[in-house]
């Protein structure tokens, strides 16, 4: 058996443990003090309230103490938590019987995914995911659900197509992907190394990355992303704008065409019956 502190060298760090324990104690103190202070039926004594205030003050002090050490916990613990939220709620999305509950679980999954994006340094994308997906797309889906299935569960929601085969397909995909992810190493393989300009022009082979590394966590990151979008990728942005417009016109056209089609079908049926 492998000792745990070789697997998790960050956790074995002493500062990490002390700040984590202090934070846990602070949160517990706050919860207990709030419980003691809240109005309850039954015993509601003065001493309990005094104890509650005291515990609350202790919790505040502990928060102040841990606030200076919280940097030690780092992004890894946050990453673990938000990715756990994302994965668990994604599993709940596809297994939930009720489609409305599935949509709400999907909203929670989006929150987790945007947390992961924030940890990975994509500030604009984390916010845009919430705004675009949870704010617009998911609400449209919920509108359609409420419109179409006001009665709730139908028989088709309680049964699935080929559950065995699809889970096997998903598991095989996940296994292959995680195999290849585990094989990643810091050295770039020779086959995939991008040729530098000097090597391509026949000069000496210089194995350098073509782009110098940018600090993604800088404070002006969103502005630089905008500069990148509208600088190097301007034509692509215009194309995406046209795509959005075409999707809008297309959806309206499909919907109105369908209505006209059903009306013409009905009118032609009437004409046939008259003749």
């Amino acid at each position: 058996m492998i000792p745990w502190n070789t697997l998790f060298p960050e956790i074995a760090n002493f500062d990490f443990i002390t700040s984590g324990i202090l934070l846990a104690i602070a949160v517990t103190c706050l919860a207990v003090s709030l419980y003691l202070l809240l109005p309850k039926s039954g015993r509601d004594s003065k001493t309990a309230q005094r104890l509650g205030w005291l515990l609350g003050l202790i919790a505040l002090g502990l928060f102040i103490v841990t606030g200076q050490r919280l940097g030690n916990i780092g992004e890894e613990a946050v990453f673990l938590m938000v990715s756990l939220v994302a994965v668990v709620s994604a599993a709940a999305t596809i297994t939930c019987r009720s489609p409305v509950y599935a949509a709400i679980w999907f909203a929670l999954c989006l929150a987790g995914v945007s947390g992961v994006l924030l940890v990975l340094g994509a500030q604009f994308l984390g916010v845009a995911t919430i705004v675009v997906y949870a704010g617009a797309i998911l609400v449209m889906f919920l509108f359609v659900l409420m419109l179409a299935q006001p009665a709730g569960l139908t028989t088709s929601d309680r049964i699935t197509n080929e559950p065995m085969l699809s889970t096997v397909a998903g598991a095989v995909l996940l296994g292959l992907l995680s195999l290849s992810i585990g094989r990643l190493s810091a050295e770039e393989p020779l086959c995939c190394r991008p040729p530098s300009k000097a090597a391509a022009l026949g000069g000496t082979a210089v194995n350098q990355r073509p782009n110098e590394s940018i600090d993604l966590l800088a404070s002006d990151q969103v502005a630089r992303l905008g500069g990148e979008l509208f600088g190097h990728h301007l034509i692509a942005v215009e194309a995406v704008g046209i795509l959005l417009l075409v999707a809008l016109i297309g959806s309206i056209a499909i919907l109105s065409n369908g209505l006209e089609g059903s009306q013409t079908e009905a009118s032609s049926l009437q004409e046939e019956s008259q003749t």
Binding site: A86, A90, D157, N161, L177
Partner: peptide, 25 residues
Amino acid sequence: NGLMVGAILLSLGLIGILSRRNLIV
């Protein structure tokens, strides 16, 4: 770790789109 989360989400979505029958889901 990021790639692993992405792979799990991708395969969960694959299972969902193959097996569920509700169009919205």
